[in-house]
């Protein structure tokens, strides 16, 4: 089973559990499984279109899944999946 590390700001949706072992074939399946077990977590993982949220990064070990096979990245026994919230902001709107 793969281990999913829940980041601090999302732990209130997983009963303060920081690490969860999940039997899933891909990253996306693991996140869907998490959403099924912890429904309040779903909106923080997926947008309304069912895609992994923009303000979320998923890492396998030290690698961003965007550099692998994104949601289809396969999971193996002992794979460690880290959910990493994007931390960003700025003082004004509409200025990039």
């Amino acid at each position: 089973m793969a281990t999913v590390i829940i980041p601090t700001p999302l732990r209130k949706f997983t009963n303060n559990t920081a690490k969860l072992d999940i039997a899933a074939g891909t990253v996306e399946e693991a996140l869907l499984d998490l959403s099924a077990n912890y429904p309040d977590l779903k909106k923080h993982l997926f947008d309304e279109g069912g895609h992994i949220r923009t303000f979320l990064n998923i890492f396998i070990g030290e690698d961003d899944i965007r550099d692998l096979q994104a949601g289809k990245t396969p999971l193996h026994d002992n794979t460690v999946v880290s959910i990493v919230p994007a931390i960003a902001g700025g003082s004004t709107d509409g200025y990039h």
Binding site: R11, I87, T92
Partner: peptide, 29 residues
């Protein structure tokens, strides 16, 4: 310890979150 807060500065602006801050913000912190 618990990771509880994110800080950032607003140069020449008041310490009020912008809409950009809000959209990108995470719960809990």
């Amino acid at each position: 310890l618990a990771l509880l807060a994110v800080y950032h500065s607003h140069p020449n602006h008041p310490a009020i979150p912008s809409e950009h801050d809000r959209v990108a913000a995470q719960p809990f912190f």
